[in-house]
Design a protein around this nucleic acid. Structure first.
Length: 301
DNA sequence: GGGCAGGTCTAAG
DNA sequence: CTTAGACCTGCC
């Protein structure tokens, strides 16, 4: 990777040449993250912009060159390098997973999904987002998260150059803090069309706010006890906990089992989904899950 | 219009 | 301990 910092006027962007196993279409299309949208009229082959870590950012890609608009070098090192998991060798991840299972569907899924990376998202946002995801579809999940952010997240000011990378006209807002979501109250959250999840979001937010649930402590625990800790929250079960841990806490062995994974288990492994896990796929079981999910969801009939 | 969407809770057996 | 139903809402 060759990294350089550039400016359009005072608007910064970072250019990275020689990225491998990185495809932003797959990364933002595989259902791990809900706050990025394709930028139409981009001058690049593909471009996605959105909000993470309180910043508005746009990722664009032409072949093995990646552009990060709205980021200077310091921001890249502090946030985006980790966010995109750039220091992990995904060829090595593939080898590790395949060392545990040579299942033919897994091999096909890895081939099909190559370029997917697990984004390192903000823990609290992840917890709330995947609570919202339950018994729900992606367009509405996105809509609810956007509405919550607009309602009580911090507004992000954009210069004219940054506005060129917006996907719509909407002004971006940071994801709300636990305090802000709590302040809405259960009734306020319900008004935001969260439905029966309102009480779950409220419970999670108030536990975080009160310190009863300390997310940075959860990060330090092993995956199984972290799952148990998160499951104390009303409305968080193993699936939501595993997603949050995989996408927000760097727990790559967390293996979310959803309806798709149940189908995968039956179709290709002739097995029950809950026997598929880190024992089957190793320390990167969660990434294997993501390949399989993406494969089944978008490719398989 | 009922069914469905990357689940979880609750109440019954 | 296991398992149906119910659950908000929006889009087909």
């Amino acid at each position: 990777m060759r990294i350089s910092e550039n400016f359009i006027g005072s608007y910064p962007f970072v250019r990275i040449d020689g990225v491998s196993e990185l495809d932003i279409e797959k990364i933002f299309d595989c259902g791990q993250c809900f706050r990025f949208e394709r930028v139409e009229n981009s001058k690049h082959a593909s471009e996605f912009s959105g909000v993470a870590y309180g910043r508005f950012v746009s990722f664009a890609q032409d072949g093995d060159t990646l552009y990060i608009y709205g980021s200077d070098l310091a921001d890249f090192e502090a946030v985006w390098r980790g966010y995109l998991d750039l220091d992990r060798d995904y060829r090595e991840v593939e080898r590790d997973v395949l060392a545990h299972s040579q299942n033919s569907a897994l091999i096909a899924a890895i081939e099909y999904g190559r370029g997917i990376r697990i984004l390192s998202q903000e823990p609290f946002e992840c917890v709330i987002s995947f609570i919202i995801s339950q018994n729900n579809n992606i367009p509405r999940i996105k809509k609810i998260i956007e509405a919550l952010s607009e309602r009580c997240g911090e507004r992000i000011e954009l210069c004219d150059e940054a506005k060129k990378h917006l996907s719509g006209e909407r002004i971006p807002y940071a994801f709300p803090s636990a305090e802000a979501l709590c302040a809405l109250g259960e009734a306020g959250l319900f008004e935001m069309k969260t439905g029966f999840r309102a009480k779950y979001i409220y419970d999670a937010s108030s536990r975080v706010l009160s310190g009863e649930l300390m997310l940075d402590t959860v990060r330090g625990e092993d995956t199984e006890s972290a799952i148990e800790k998160l499951c104390e929250v009303k409305g968080i079960g193993r699936k939501v906990a595993s997603c949050a841990l995989l996408f927000g806490f760097g727990k790559y062995d967390a293996f979310p089992i959803d309806v798709w994974m149940k189908r995968v288990a039956e179709k290709y492994f002739g097995d029950e989904a809950d026997t598929l896990s880190s024992r089957t796929f190793g320390d990167y079981a969660g990434i294997a899950q993501q390949y399989l999910f993406y494969y089944e969801r978008w490719n398989a009939v």
